[in-house]
Write a protein that binds this DNA or RNA. Structure first.
Lengths: 195, 195
DNA sequence: CTGTTTTTTCAGTAATTACTGAAATTACAG
DNA sequence: CTGTAATTTCAGTAATTACTGAAAAAACAG
């Protein structure tokens, strides 16, 4: 490794974190390296700086491409392909959310829908069926919501999150505007709800 | 395996998904089994129904306990320990978010803060430093926001998500109330923002 | 086209992670 | 306490996943 101390720290950390996700260490390190590098890098540079074989870099890049996390570039007069990542952290996050939803939520959704249909009439499984319904309702809500959020600009998203739970206050307020009074709730610190 | 077809489908699926998270197949299967079982189960039952060795079940349960995802029970006159999961899917999700934040975001946050401090004066790394700042800002916002959301009741959360991007409309509206006019933005389908 | 550079694939191997049975520890009824 | 039932730990092994070098394929300049 031929990297500055700062870069080394970051690369090692994100490699470590990477293996806690489904993603492997190599891929995590490559991505961190690209995120914190000012200029686009080619596969040889990556392999050299991180100490991976050329083929390992190729596989890592393939994985990252399949996540849509890379921006490829071509320097005129150079056959090599160079890679960078989206400028804006929010854009990276947006991609991550979308891809993870596709890989983790969508398949589950389809299994649950299937289960709901094919086991509707099976007796003696009332409970499991009910749980399938609940979970399906929950996941559908989450999926719709994330899709919805994908359509907001980074600025609006940032504004919304900054508000945090304050959003609820605003909504409570606007609800009060429409119907007479909607009771307390909403602002209270959360009612205890499990032993 | 001594399970109904429905349960078998669900257990196998969540086992598979489990291995795409950091969590392993066994743990995913055990949790699915508990989620979709009406009554609490003991380690022997789990092992028998899923075809795992007793020790493997023990390790799986240990992992799940460390995630705070189990509710232990004791039947009077029975030495065995029985396990179930929180009733409400929202409660399970809340726990998952909290634990994943602790395991995945908090360590990164501390590495970035550290990096920010110890490399403040290093020249020639202006870019990496700037990216550290950006990412730190982003993650801090996310963390604060999730903590904030943790404090809402399941009902309020559900209401908020149902609104989806509509929230923004409400906010836009309430912003208009305060200042004269805040321009268009917000409701539009999202401006193209990357090639 | 042809020759050269670059990237990808893949079979073999290394490293890691998951799982087991046996032994040790803990929990508890009498 | 004592004895028994239950759980956890752990060393060894199985299974999976990561990584490499060599060969094949693709990309491209002339």
């Amino acid at each position: 490794m031929n990297l500055s101390p700062l870069m080394t720290t970051l690369v090692l950390h994100f490699g470590e974190m990477g293996s806690r996700w489904g993603i492997n260490r190599t891929v995590g390190q490559i991505y961190a390296y690209l995120v914190f590098s000012q200029d686009a890098r080619n596969a040889d540079q990556i392999g050299e700086d991180l100490g991976f074989s050329r083929s390992n870099v190729s596989m890592g890049l393939k994985e990252l491409k399949s996540w849509n996390l890379l921006r490829p570039h071509h320097q005129p007069g150079d056959r090599k392909e160079y890679f960078s990542v989206p400028e804006d952290v929010w854009e990276i996050a947006r991609i991550l959310v979308r891809e993870r939803r596709q890989r983790e939520l969508d398949p589950t959704l389809s299994v649950l829908r299937d289960a709901q249909l094919s086991h509707r009439q099976d007796g003696g499984e009332r409970y499991a069926q009910r749980r399938v319904d609940e979970m399906l309702g929950f996941l559908e809500l989450i999926v719709t919501w994330t899709e919805d959020m994908q359509n907001l600009s980074a600025d609006d998203l940032r504004r919304l999150m900054k508000l945090g739970a304050g959003v609820n206050k605003v909504l409570e307020f606007s609800r009060r505007g429409r119907r007479a009074d909607s009771g307390p709730s909403a602002l209270e610190p959360r009612t205890e709800q499990d032993s």
